[in-house]
Design a protein around this nucleic acid. Sequence first.
DNA 1: TATGAATGAGCCTTCATTCAT
DNA 2: GATGAATGAAGGCTCATTCAT
Lengths: 195, 195, 195, 195
Amino acid sequence: MRDPDKPQAIIDAAIRVFARSGYYNSRVSDIAREAGIASGTIYLYFKTKDDILVTLFREKMAEWVALVQKEVAAERDPLAKIRKIVALHFRMIQDNPELAEVVQVELRQGHKFFRGASAHEVSAYFDVIQSVLEEGVAAGRIRRDLPLKVATKMLFGAMDQLATSWVLGKRAYRLTDAAEPVASIFLKGVTTDGV
Amino acid sequence: MRDPDKPQAIIDAAIRVFARSGYYNSRVSDIAREAGIASGTIYLYFKTKDDILVTLFREKMAEWVALVQKEVAAERDPLAKIRKIVALHFRMIQDNPELAEVVQVELRQGHKFFRGASAHEVSAYFDVIQSVLEEGVAAGRIRRDLPLKVATKMLFGAMDQLATSWVLGKRAYRLTDAAEPVASIFLKGVTTDGV
Amino acid sequence: MRDPDKPQAIIDAAIRVFARSGYYNSRVSDIAREAGIASGTIYLYFKTKDDILVTLFREKMAEWVALVQKEVAAERDPLAKIRKIVALHFRMIQDNPELAEVVQVELRQGHKFFRGASAHEVSAYFDVIQSVLEEGVAAGRIRRDLPLKVATKMLFGAMDQLATSWVLGKRAYRLTDAAEPVASIFLKGVTTDGV
Amino acid sequence: MRDPDKPQAIIDAAIRVFARSGYYNSRVSDIAREAGIASGTIYLYFKTKDDILVTLFREKMAEWVALVQKEVAAERDPLAKIRKIVALHFRMIQDNPELAEVVQVELRQGHKFFRGASAHEVSAYFDVIQSVLEEGVAAGRIRRDLPLKVATKMLFGAMDQLATSWVLGKRAYRLTDAAEPVASIFLKGVTTDGV
DNA sequence: TATGAATGAGCCTTCATTCAT
DNA sequence: GATGAATGAAGGCTCATTCAT
């Protein structure tokens, strides 16, 4: 396993191919052709076809969570952090629609991800959101009685649905334009009254 | 003379099988065995394996939308209608976890559903939600400046994520208990201030 | 097996269906539909799908040979008998193109016919031709040194090829018009010089 | 890098298998086993099972027609050319009885061949025969009033029937021994009187 | 006798994976 | 390491045949 760029090139090719046809309708040889290599070469870097998807997913999610954590840390205000998360989420989707399509769709293959190999990476993102909400509560900006897990899932679900609609739809508008309304509605729903 | 219960029995068996292994990892013969019939019999009622999934999806979504429409019509207050939708959504998921798992997961196979055969059924549910929000605006209970499509997707996304987490998780709690918090947070986010 | 018309109706339907699609591309249910009966009914009269073809073939060949024998017996002159055979052959093909197509094509399924169940019926037709040639030799009208088996096959092959070309072709001409030329060429080839 | 001998090996195996059981009763896996390869390998070289038969047929007929054309061109005398064609035809059948059996039988699958993909190859052989007859007419050796198309089909049909009988029969004699009688009878039938 | 729904063996074809070069 | 031809297990679908009604 010498060439350090090959795995990345394979993953990038896989993203494009999976986005086009879905995991089960894509052939390993399609990925190889897209990557400009022979299909046997893929098996020098990945154990199985499944391994490509799982690795892809883990890697991208880890990158993503790291980025969000860094950006969120740069903000002081808990509510600004929430706005930041929404803005980042939508920007990432908008800038990487193929990756987004793969993740949106295949993420739901519960057996593979939520319950499986990538559960950790997924929950890390939820943890980031929940931590910010906790900060908000501690700062008195978010309702003390807010059920945090529920609110976390709601925000993720709301963002995810906007993203899904955009990815699977015609993409005739800028998803990033939805960030402010989404954040505002959510924040109005969770913040302390009179603040 | 064809048995009019067979298609339903096949669909019910397919729901159990797809929930267990996912569409692509299920064999037609698995569905047949689950339904207690020979695999060839399935082809007397469905054209292809795909047809089973699409029919299943369309049928269940149509039933679902009809039920929600009826129940919502029975409520007067727009905000009570929203609470009703959330309660129904969660009850349905909780009472039909296998169906829920299939729909949650396969719904995202964008190529098959959102963009494909079942786009109509899916959007009908969105229409129900959006109509209620419009009523709320007309009644002065919901913010006049609310971006309706965004709010509709947010509510659906929030419910869907709660449902997904519950379905794919350990189901150690009652999903219906989450209905009130979800509805409250959402409503606080969208209702007119001071109402 | 009460209804005496059913087997005939099934065979007639089979002729039309086999002519249209060939034996292997025809389904038993196609024959049933063509005959206006249920597919299970076919098995009251025929043991297998194969049995339909074999019975069809035997029956039609037997009828055919009986007819030719009768008509040939009505002629005195051996050469006139040959002309009669050719004329009858072409008329039969022309009047029953669907039967002809089935027989022409499936006849060659050597395993089933020449070597199999219908060898007897096929050779009976060859016997008729050869007998006439023998008469011709005995009457001094046909060359004494003619290899009879070869000449018999040649005449049959010549007629059969004309028939095949007509059946598989556009049928834009009357096959019966070819009877006289075919008979003449053959007879010139086999008759005694100077007669 | 694909093995250039594989397609030929597959076709040769297919000839043996088809000759043994007929096209419809042969499985692709039978051909693979006969060729000593895995069944999937066949699909690296042929698109479908049907493609094997069509390719086999086209290729062999093209070779055959080319050979006949070359050999016929080497003869001067039109009548000698006819004798040559008959001799070659019978020799080819006798030397390749399995190929012969396949071609004889499947050739009649009108839908596939005469009317289908290989119509061109088949008619090329007829063209060779007819051209020679035309030469004979031009040379005054063959009757000016001979209906050429009829005579062409007669000769082909005669040869084909002798071949079929031999192939499907016990092959207890040398087919090539029939060449001279067949040619003589045909030529006596078509040549100018007194020549 | 007639029906046609049900059966399930059978087969073509695909494609993830291997391995000789 | 890289290749891609070869493999062969797997599965969707068909259809001849059966049998309960």
